[in-house]
């Protein structure tokens, strides 16, 4: 059943995405102040939530990997770290598109923008270290992920106090309940895709570790 779970999740996403898109574009009103461009909100906000959740999950998995030497935790930390990079990139692309249409500027140095950018950089460093680091750097990458997860609120607060001396930005105001109601199917669809990808990537890492162990066993057994 667990092996087929990614397929189930992708199938659910295949149904949820068209439903969500038609609901957002055909059955949800156009926001008066921002116009049609506000529709990006239904993708941008869930992606940002998913990115934050993945960053925290990556930090927790990395801490378990470091303290308990768990292969499963290591696989989860790799998969979540890589997905933070992908979802973060999507957030950093959709955010400025929305910002450009709403504020007239793609990048306003808003606290959320900068903190998302910095968090993305930390996880980019995590992926670089996993990919190009020498033997033993997996522990270092895990420590980086722990710091990254802990840094989430710190970065946000740091940028917020830094912004007190900069011009303030008129961030999006409150939205009517029916617009929030259209957000949940979009969130569900994106969560299904993310979880499906996560499970596939975890399985890949587990298989890789199994192959490595088999190779070592074969090598040492041959001697």
């Amino acid at each position: 059943m667990l092996a087929r779970l990614p397929l189930v999740l992708f199938a659910a996403a295949a149904l949820a995405i068209p439903y969500s898109v038609q609901r957002i574009f055909l059955h949800t009103g156009i926001e008066k102040k921002m116009g049609t461009v506000q529709k990006i909100f239904y993708f941008h906000v869930p992606l940002a939530w998913i990115m934050m959740a993945l960053a925290v999950a990556c930090g927790i998995a990395a801490a378990i990997q470091l303290r308990r030497r768990s292969q499963l935790a290591e696989s989860i930390s790799i998969a979540t770290g890589e997905l933070v990079l992908i979802t973060g990139l999507a957030v950093l692309v959709t955010g400025p598109i929305w910002g450009h249409a709403t504020w007239g500027r793609a990048w306003t140095w808003d606290a959320r923008q900068v903190s998302t950018g910095l968090l993305w950089l930390i996880f980019a460093a995590f992926v670089l270290l996993r990919r190009y680091g020498a033997a033993g750097s997996e522990r270092l990458a895990a420590a980086l992920a722990v710091f990254g997860a802990v840094d989430v609120p710190v970065i946000y607060y740091a940028v917020k106090i830094w912004k007190t001396t900069h011009p303030s930005t008129d961030v999006v105001g409150s939205l009517p309940p029916q617009m929030w109601a259209s957000l949940w199917p979009a969130l569900g669809a994106l969560v299904c895709v993310t979880l499906g990808l996560l499970l596939v990537r975890i399985r890949q890492e587990q298989d890789q570790a199994g192959l490595d162990e088999a190779w070592i066993a074969l090598d040492t057994g041959g001697k």
């Binding site: 950089l121 930390i122 980019a124 460093a125 190009y132 680091g133 020498a134 750097s137 270092l140 740091a158």
Partner: peptide, 18 residues
């Protein structure tokens, strides 16, 4: 980790930004 010190800057600057 076998002397890949070049990665220190890659790690250090984003992490110390706050």
């Amino acid at each position: 980790a076998s002397g890949k010190n070049v990665l220190l800057s890659v790690i250090l600057y984003p992490l110390t930004s706050p």
